[in-house]
Design a protein around this nucleic acid. Structure first.
Length: 314
RNA sequence: GGAUGGAUAACCCGUAAUUGGUAGCGGUGCUGACUGUAAAUCAGUUAUCUUAAUGACUCUGGAGGUUCAAGUCCUCCUCCAUCCA
């Protein structure tokens, strides 16, 4: 019998947090946050982090576990999430993954193998090459060792080209072949994968309103304090979060506050769109349409029905 | 009444087009990719029609003209700005 796992996700600002609490209470669940920014301490306003009060006693994992100057990535997430899932299951509770990072969810759900990764300086030598010889040069290098990857990855996508080269360097294996194998995996869990969604125009309205509220709550001060306290720079993972990078640019005097807000709203809309693209492609997804189930209670009712059908709850 | 400069950008915004030679680019919007930075990174597309293609057919304030060819040159008209009366 496979272990149970519930996933509740959706584009940013759609209203996942409120619903996740109601769901957790209804099924005796504990929440694991799949969010690349909420893992960081002191990054509360810009990440729209859930408050202690809002948690209403429901246990939450992977929130506030790193300092803003620490690295984070999908592998760290996967390890931490797996640990949390096992603990939750041991307690006889149901793990609920909530958050908008589709890639992280996929990594756990399909138990993707990322292999060991030792930094021997190869990566930074590639980055140097990129700067000196350009993206096409690296792409040509990839073509020689892994033609399929070179075909799949656009030459401008240097980040992915570098990763593919690095992978081959470290394992002697083509990443395209590895990915193909990993993709064929089926999940070790008995799961339900809910994607909360609403009409695009409404979602965009919610996003803009939410950004305005963040500013009222003091987003600029939050970012300023973080930078002072942790000596953060633009290339750190935490500073790539929406709301942080734009305000960072403003504080560095690169753009005006108005521009920062405009860009933040726009890029958050783009982000929401990308999330939806991801979920659309994901297999075995249960869409929960907020326009159809117009209250959280109705959404919940529907979700509980699905969970019963899948024998995740009785 | 006269003089000079101007009117383009396919829902929208900003900006091009050389001696006359494919109305280009950027933004927004839309679509997609993604297996170790994923709130990251990258790509495509954005007049209309169809059989969806290396297809058809329109578009530079309006009407005409010159030319193989006009956003560009000529004539007239409309509107805007500045100046002179």
């Amino acid at each position: 019998m496979k272990d149970s796992l519930i996933i509740l996700t959706g584009p940013t600002a759609v209203g996942k947090t409120d619903l996740s609490i109601k769901l957790a209470k209804a099924v005796q669940g504990e929440i694991i946050s799949a969010d690349s920014i909420q893992v960081y301490k002191y990054m509360d306003i810009g990440s729209a982090k859930i408050t202690q009060k809002e948690m209403q006693g429901v246990p939450h994992h992977l929130i506030d576990v790193l300092n803003p100057n620490e690295d984070f990535n999908v592998v760290l997430f996967k390890n931490m999430a797996n640990k949390a899932i096992n603990e939750i299951l041991d307690r006889g509770h149901i793990p609920i993954i909530t958050g908008g990072t589709g890639f992280y969810i996929q990594a756990v759900l399909y138990d993707i193998d990322f292999k060991e990764n030792e930094d021997d300086g190869y990566r930074s030598s590639l980055e140097k090459l990129l700067e000196e010889k350009g993206a096409v040069y690296l792409h040509d290098m990839l073509k020689e060792i892994d033609e399929k990857s070179a075909k799949d990855i656009h030459f401008n996508n240097a980040k992915k080209v570098i990763r593919a080269l690095e992978y081959y360097h470290q394992t002697g294996e083509k990443i395209s072949e590895h990915n193909e194998m990993e993709r064929a995996k089926s999940s070790p869990y008995n799961f339900a994968y809910f994607v909360l969604n609403c009409e695009r125009a409404k979602l965009y309205q919610r996003i803009e309103k939410r950004v305005d509220i963040m500013l009222e709550q003091g987003l600029v001060d939050e970012v300023k304090n973080l930078i002072d306290k942790y000596k953060l720079t633009a290339d750190m993972v935490s500073m790539q979060g929406l709301g942080y990078k734009e305000i960072y640019s403003y504080l560095m005097g690169e753009i005006s506050l108005d521009e920062a807000v405009y860009i933040l709203k726009r890029d958050t809309r783009h982000f929401a769109k990308r999330q939806l693209t991801w979920f659309r492609r994901e297999k075995e997804v249960t869409w929960v349409d907020k326009d159809f189930y117009d209250t959280d209670e109705k959404c919940l009712e529907y979700m509980l029905r699905v969970l019963k059908d899948k024998n995740i709850i009785l």
